[in-house]
Nucleic acid binder design. Sequence first.
RNA 1: GCCGAAGUGGCGGAAUUGGCAGACGCGCCAGAUUCAGGAUCUGGUGGACAUUGCGUCCGUGGGGGUUCGAAUCCCCCCUUCGGCACCA
Length: 855
Amino acid sequence: MEPYNPRGIEKRWQERWQKEDAFSVERDASKEKFYLLEMFPYPSGRIHMGHVRNYSIGDVLARFLRMRGYNVLHPMGWDAFGLPAENAAINHGIHPARWTEENIAYMRTQLKRMGFSYDWHREISTCTPRYYRWNQYLFLKLYEKGLAYRKESLVNWCPSCSTVLANEQTEEGRCWRCESVVEKKVLMQWFLKITEYAEELLQDTYRLSGWPEKVLVMQRNWIGKSTGAEVDFPVKDSDKKIKIFTTRPDTLYGVTFMSLAPEHPLAAELTSPERREEVEGFIKQVSSLTTRDREASCKEGVFTGSYCINPLTGEAVPIYVANFVLMEYGTGAVMAVPAHDQRDFEFARQYGLPIKVVIHPPERELNPDGMEEAYTEPGVMKDSGPFTGLPSEEAKEKIVEMLEELRMGKKTVNYKLKDWGISRQRYWGCPIPIVYCEGCGTVPLPYQELPVILPLDVNLTGRGLSPLKGHSFVNTTCPRCGRDAQRETDTMDTFVDSSWYFLRFTSPHTEDAPFKREDASYWMPVDQYIGGIEHAVLHLLYARFFTKAMRDMGLADIDEPFKNLLTQGMVCKETKRCPECGYLSDDECQDGRCKHCGREYATGAVEKMSKSKKNTVDPDSIIERYGADTTRLFTLFAAPPERDLEWSEEGVEGGYRFLNRVWRLVTEHLPLIKDVEPYRGGERLDGPLEEIRHMTHRTIKKVSEDMERRFHFNTAISAIMELVNSLYLWNRDKEDEPARMVLKEALQTVVALLSPFAPHIAEELWEKMGNTTPLYRTAWPEYDPKAIEKEEVLIVVQIDGKVRGKLTVPRDATREDVEERALGDEAIARWLEKRTIRKTIYVEGRILNIVTAQR
RNA sequence: GCCGAAGUGGCGGAAUUGGCAGACGCGCCAGAUUCAGGAUCUGGUGGACAUUGCGUCCGUGGGGGUUCGAAUCCCCCCUUCGGCACCA
């Protein structure tokens, strides 16, 4: 008998799919569309297990939905601009363009070797002028709308990547990519006005019912809306005002000092001559610290020598510069109410500043001297002029009203979200289509001059500012006045590229627009998006913003790009650690010892696969050894998609064993089933055959439901395994025609149900069974509702909640029948000897519980 | 500190609406086949006790509760992971 040979089979079917153009799609109004998208990869060189998992999950759905009759758009492309390409150029002298192209070429073959069913005609790469010209086009549109602007600002600077990072791209004061500690720098920067959409981005999170709550919460936190008031505090003996933001206008009467951020423009200005040295020293010291160190240090501050006036009380309070006040949030100035804010409380205690209680709690009296912490809850107003005695929540509104009347403040909503800084001082990215002219200033390029092509002949050193700075690329003429002018040399953040690529996939070859409107209207929104959670507030927020901005520019007609989102878990594996040599890869281990130093190594925690932990597994080696079908099957079987997956070589073996089992089961029975039709209902079957058919159809139901309702591929696969196991145990004579027909139906079902998971072996067996239409063009099996109903059902009999027996009764048995049978059952009767029946509970077709009292 | 998710055999995990806990897989044990090993097939495999038979008791992180019945619902606590964290 022919053994299972994944290599040959997989190659053969991949060639056939390609030849038959099996997965290309067109707009087709007569079919229901389904846009299935997985986050496209950065072409780093080779795919990793995270990609394999992400794309396997996507491919199962794509293949399943196609068989279900949907017109499935399932594209793939490359997020091809980015720093690693440039670093490769610097370290290995290879041009970023070539490096990227070669990586794409290799990774494309890897994806094809996995058998993923993409429409390769739609492949896009963001580093090609044909793609990025539309980036530039969109940038100009945003500029026209006032949604792109340039300003000097304090930015996050990653010294290792030598470029700016957006707020979203730093984590705990470190670069999201290389983990270097981020510095602060003042630079001229292009920004996109994402804050214009803060409210809508926030509100729509409450409508994205197809997204994981976790991601929505993260986005809401990031947007960070808070409602409060802006209040002006005039500076004493000056015409300056300090504007503050507070969420607690009800505590205005309790202000005892003012705190400014060290970067606040008024900080230096308001400092009196005799305090200048101290204040400037303090500011210098604080601003030399990284964000991270600043957050770690304790509360400190210095008095500026100036005072400001509380607009309601007329009282003068001292102005401090304090290290815990952030210039980035609110107005960079905070009215300090030590009695009702913990930070102000600590600061006041440290510097001996007064504490004034203006809200008292319901059941106790607050004594400023005895307080151990600030009282931050609502309460009743006290010592607050006309507001005394009001509940604080009510006073909040009233005080804001009064401020508005006095023109000293107003109700405000503040967001933590900042505008998106997109300038990057690096080479391998999309040029910003802007020209600087001495006469005309900042001039956007006219649309017909796009694309601004990134020059290829550059000298990359990795030092200094953008490599484009000294290049002839810079020199141009002003589109407005025709005189000599200079191009912008910063390139765009690569997150711009990925903020709209899903739209480009709907019409990737369109040359006169970013995409065709009709195509986008037909395909959008993405019905199912799949990717890692690491983009919860990066890519996923930017893409939502772009979609809304494009809608308002009249380019798209949707509010949200991704209807359903699945965030898959990480691929993990245990780590091995040598006390001498650190982390070890599998190759560095032998017989429990480190190959380098011979010491015994310790088996460590199960952690996300990463090069630094040396616990990665190369997909190529797994495909080589077991084939793509096994690789796919294992990643789908080992855990449900949203959970972390623990890699196990034994588990992979198990998957391979299963496919071999299927292979043998089908090929062994080929002679029997070749010349019959699969059973399709009709003539009556005897008991054992009925049972097989019942199993077959129950499996169809179970697999279909697990696939579409829950994406629980692991349980879907286990159901197929059960069917295979029971077919192996079929030990009666299979020669008669009904048996052969039922067998054929069962085997065809196994193969069809398996096909989204392991498409190559499934196609091969399907063909061997005599089918001429390939599975990818075959409809998904439907179950026969009559076949899944059983003539008899199993009733569990409990006595006082404990299982004491089981009865097989006819499906239509009544409660009385079941009770009678139960009481007549010998084992159950024995349990009832010493008890009196109080009542019985009967759940139809499931359980009979007899509740008793001890006699 | 705040918010969220999770905790089930030796391991990965299942139990869809409150109704037989442990499906399926891995590992392990035994049998068949084999000169042998591997592969394959079959059976067993939560714990304790009993294994002369049926079996009995315990068991889903811990404690309490609701219910005829709880892995599932409620309250308290513990642990792990993730996110946020001077946000005024």
